[in-house]
Every structure is written in structure tokens, then in C-alpha cells.
Design a protein around this nucleic acid. Sequence first.
DNA 1: TTTCCTTACGCCTATCGTAAGCATA
DNA 2: TATGCTTACGATAGGCGTAAGGAAA
Lengths: 296, 296
Amino acid sequence: MEFRQLACFVAVAEELHFGRAADRLCMTQPPLSRQIQLLEHTLGVSLFDRNSRHVHLTAAGRRFLQDARQLLAHAERAAQMARRTSEGEAGSMSLGFTAVGAYRLMPALLVRAREVLPDVDIQLREMVSAGLGDLLIAGELDTILTRQLPRTPGLQHHLIEREPLVLALTPNSPLAHYDAVPLSALHRQPFLLYGPNESRYFYERILGAFGLADVTPQIVQLAGQTHTLLALVRAGLGVGIVPDSARELRLEGVIFRPLAQENMHADIYLAWRSQHDNPALTAFLTRVANVPQAAA
Amino acid sequence: MEFRQLACFVAVAEELHFGRAADRLCMTQPPLSRQIQLLEHTLGVSLFDRNSRHVHLTAAGRRFLQDARQLLAHAERAAQMARRTSEGEAGSMSLGFTAVGAYRLMPALLVRAREVLPDVDIQLREMVSAGLGDLLIAGELDTILTRQLPRTPGLQHHLIEREPLVLALTPNSPLAHYDAVPLSALHRQPFLLYGPNESRYFYERILGAFGLADVTPQIVQLAGQTHTLLALVRAGLGVGIVPDSARELRLEGVIFRPLAQENMHADIYLAWRSQHDNPALTAFLTRVANVPQAAA
DNA sequence: TTTCCTTACGCCTATCGTAAGCATA
DNA sequence: TATGCTTACGATAGGCGTAAGGAAA
């Protein structure tokens, strides 16, 4: 069975006239008759009752007409879908992110992807920072949103958001009177810090800033994740430095103040394998994440 | 795009090795490579990333593999369905019947058809006797269950059921004492008869029998359909002669007695056009209705 | 006699297989 | 150096078009 024969069959079935069908197919009647005969032979079935005066479909022909049309349409769709997939217009990709990235950045990317690449299916996967890098390197994720870039060759990254670090505190804290809090105001104050295992980036970033400023807060507790840390702030154990997106948690009893210090910010990167082979990812990088030169 | 190319593509995609795929397809590597290239060219897309060492699918190739498999499977199913349709194993047919035929015969036929021809869809249509014949002749019904054969050339029929005629009466009727009621017992008795328009067959059949037996009942009312007639019997207006299948109506307050008369029966025929072109009908006639020689 | 599907026949394109080319580990 | 995909080339098979055949109104 050949697609050509299906097209011939559909034309004859619609015209119910070999001559007109041949015209439509831009060929002469004899080879058209022959194609129909060949198709009937391979099927082992008569598709038309015909003589030199009348042509009409048999029951098998009526049934096969439906399938022939579907097959031709499906073939056309399949070809188009292959083309669109190769251009990244359709397909699927996976995006890993951490809890923090989830609040503002990931939803924004997703909304934009839906708009720009509606036929690209994005599988989301949330997990802790360390796991993200491993899955990316192993090829189980196409791209990740992370603060902590894996130190592995073969990865590319793009700074996608730089958000300020802010001080989280309770409304009745004396520090609440500052418009912008200087780090020095935290010297020997009860302070809540991210843990070095679960959130190494913030741990190092914040301790580094204190070191440069020669300020030593009184670290009363380590917390793995932002929502844990804010809960402890609200409980009155101390203040903490968190990324601005922590506001999205909308935790009552916790307020935020900018830091007076310059360069107090947290970065979020989009990272992917240089040698990925997913056109949907390329399209996502260039057209959704606005990465320049996101070639594989 | 050709089915051959789809088969080649699926083989290579499954083996990820041109040599083994060629073996599976019973051909040599070079023409297989060429077919894949042709397919890629018509699609305008690379389906494999390959060099002399490794072969693996591109994103477009993975996507197209699904479609290729579906297309091949659909083509196979379509061919098989065409064959089965031509043999009457699959397809559809329409069956017309009257209210009377509905109680016992039609359900029995339908149950048997489900068993013997599960993939034949039977469209049921219930209407009055006269309309059935017209629709059959017009080709809008494939076959009908009828007592009254249309007197039209080009139809074939088969006696499918011969049911006895029985007397319908109330339990307190004096005639209830008979095991089998002789027609003579109905002489000058109040009698309910089918109407000549709606039920000509019974009208003529019953009056004919009375004529032969030289019995003249007192006809108190004409009734078009069996359930109407039985309702009048229950109301005490008289007795009536109905086909045995009227028992299926299970009307309380009405009982039935056989008639002593020989040859008191009503026939039901299956009728169809001699020159129909529906293999499903042929299969139904021969394998469900047990019609001998039911050729078109 | 006309219409129109089918058969017959020659030409041409396309596929296959064999043989050689060439890149990679 | 061996494996394995690709290119080159000649033989064959299949499709198309022209021309003739044949059945139905």
C-alpha cells in the first residue's frame, strides 16, 4: 500500500469518475485505473463497483475511504510536527528549580513560554539545589534555575535574575526604623543564617559580606530553607538576610527592609548542557529566557 | 513520504544501527541509508545524528517515530478492516421492525448478531408496517421484519417465525374453561379485531379464518395495535385473536388460550433487496438469521 | 455512436545490490 | 586497522503516457 494509491483512491471516491479524478491528480486515466487496481489487489478487496457507465463505492470502499483520509492527514501532520520539533516550535523539555526560584521567576518563565512556544511541553521538577546540578549533568533535566552553578565543564549558563538581599525582621524590632539597614547594625545581634549544606550559596554569600564589613552577628540558628528561616524570624529568635523574592511567601508578622550595603544581591542562573540536542530547549533559551547565542 | 520509508525509519530507530536494521528489512545498508536520506529530505529534517560510529535519534526523530509507528499500524488496521468489511465481518446495517416484532424476535436476532458478528453495527428502526416496506424499497433500510411482504419485485424474503394465534380473554370469561378454544365458540360473541389499515395482515388473516369456519363473531371494536386490543379485552369489551408473542406484553387481567383450529398462525418474514451491496447484511442473513442462499 | 473504464506497450524514473570511499575509535 | 555509514554505478522493476480494446446507454 502506498500513499500515492491512497491519494488516488480518495480522488476517485470523491469524484466517482476516473477521468475527473485523473484530472485532479494531474495524470491520465489509465495509470489511475492501474493504481486503484493495485490497491484493491494488495487489500484483497474491491473498493469500487464500476463499469464504463457508473462508478460507486462498495461497503469496504466506504469504510476504507475514512481510513485513507485519516492516513493522509496524519502523514501530513506528522511531517509538519517533525519540522516544528526540529525548530523547537514543538516538543518537550524539562526545567528544574529550587523552592526559592518557584515563587517569582519560574512562573514568569512558564507564562511567557506558554505564550511564545505554546506547543512545547515543559516538565517541571522542584528539588534542592545540589540535586539539580546532578540531574542536569546526567541529562535528566534540560535546564535548571539555580543560584549555585555546578562547577562542571560542558555547561553553559545565563544570569537570569539578580535580586537584592533584604533583611527580614519583625515589625517591633528596633531595626524596623531604618529605611535601609547597614550591616553594622547587625553586629552582635541575634541572627538567623542559611545552613551550609542545603543553601550553601546564601551561607557563603552572607558570611562573606559580613566578613568584608568586619561585622560579626550572633548566629543563633541555621535554617535550610527560606520559609523555615522566616518562621524563626517571626518567632522572635532574630533577624535574617533573605532574597527579595521571599516577600512572595507573604508570611504575616514578618516585614522586610533593604540593606544599605552595595552589591548585596543574590543571583539566579539558568544553566544547561552546551551539547544538548533539544531544539525545544534552544527555542526556550533564545525566545523565552532571552539568552543571546544559545547555540548547542 | 512512503510507507516503505516509514518502515525503514522505524527499523533504524529501533536498532540504532543501519546494518542490523538492513538485515531485519532483508536488504543491504546502502539503499537503506538512501531511503532514510530521502525521508529526511522530504521532511526537511534530520531524523538521526549519525557518524560511522554512533547512530541516535534527534528530537524530531523521536517525535516522528511515534507518528511513523502509528501510521504503519493504522495502515495495517485499515487494510484488515476493509477486508473484514467486504466479508461482512465488520460494518453496519439497518433493521426495521414493527412493534409486534420487537417483543421476542428482534431482541433474539440482536443478541445472536452481537455474538456472531460483534463488529457489525446494527441500526434499529421501529415503525408501522406500511412504512417499513417503503423504506426497504427506497434503500434506507437494509432489512425488515414484517408480517406483510411488500408486493414489489426485487425483494427477497425468508420466513423467520411462524407463531400460533391465540385467544386473548379475561380470566372470568366462560371461554377460559377451554384448553383449546374452537372458532365456533366465538360465534356471535363480542369480538375485538385488528383494524384493516394499521394491521391489514391480521385483519385479513382472522376474518379469512372465520369465513372458512363459517363463524360470525360480533365485532364490537377495531384496534390498530396489539396493546390497544388487549387493553380492550381487559376492559371486558370482548375477546380477541392475537399472536402468541402478545404474551410478552405481560398485561395483568388478560389470559391466553390456544385455538383448536389448525393452521391458525401468524408469519413473520425477514425481507431485503435482492441487489443490496452490503456484505454485513449478507453475513447477517446467512449467519444470524440462518437464511439459506442469501446471495445478493 | 458516444462515453469511459481497461488492457497493451514503450519510455523513463527510481530502487536495489555490488563495489569503492571515508571517517572514527 | 576494523567497523560502519555514505557515495558511485549498472541492472532491474514499476509508473506514466499514448494508443487500442470493449462494454453500456
